[in-house]
């Protein structure tokens, strides 16, 4: 089975831990033999293909700016989260793609942009179009979700798996086409 490491990034308070907890909560199915270290792991089936996600959630350690490189290095896919109720959190992440790309040393990094807390539409400060525009400039997919209502949460993680699959295939293809030339 394929295994992916996903890093969840974003400012404090946007709902990263809520999102991860929602997602991994259903982990405890007696399917295989998980261990206590497997808290942040979850099996997910996307487009008929099962894979395992290991999630590195930076919640609680956002202020350790010197550790960010390490987190990013360890990840294969990145879920970048802001809260639609806070323009500030959207502003905080605008350079995130550049940071990730720089650390990974490649333009081809699977990223997903997520606007959380979409249940609080009356407090919305970031319009969906703004999120979409940023995602387009990053050329990555975009979703809005609510960790509180468990709305779109699994979809979000499925999307990052798709993105990782896609980027992996693309780089494999480009490698093979390069070697042909």
């Amino acid at each position: 089975m394929r295994e992916f490491k996903v890093v969840v990034l974003g400012s404090g308070g946007v709902g990263k831990s809520a999102l991860t907890v929602q997602f991994v909560s259903s982990t405890f199915i007696e399917k295989y033999d998980p261990t206590i270290e497997d808290f942040y792991r979850k099996e997910i089936e996307v487009d008929g293909q099962p894979s395992v996600l290991e999630i590195l959630d930076t919640a609680g350690t956002e202020q350790f700016s010197s550790m960010r490189d390490l987190y990013i290095k360890n990840g294969q896919g990145f879920v970048v989260v802001y809260s639609i109720t806070s323009q500030q959190t959207f502003h905080d992440i605008r350079n995130m793609k550049e940071q990730i790309v720089r650390v990974k040393g490649s333009e081809n990094v699977p990223i997903l942009l997520v606007g959380n807390k979409c249940d609080l539409s009356h407090q919305r400060q970031v319009r969906s179009e703004e999120g979409l525009a940023l995602a387009e400039s990053w050329s990555c997919p975009f979703t809005e979700c609510s960790a509180k209502n468990n709305q779109n949460v699994n979809v979000t993680f499925a999307e990052i798996v798709r993105e990782m699959n896609y980027v992996q295939n693309k780089s494999r293809q480009s490698k093979s086409c390069c070697s042909l030339m």
């Binding site: 809520a18 991860t20 959630d57 930076t58 919640a59 609680g60 350690t61 350790f64």
Partner: peptide
């Protein structure tokens, strides 16, 4: 302390 904070964060969130 980062890991302690992370652990407390998840005990709280979960």
């Amino acid at each position: 302390i980062g890991i302690i904070l992370q652990d407390l964060t998840f005990v709280h969130a979960g």
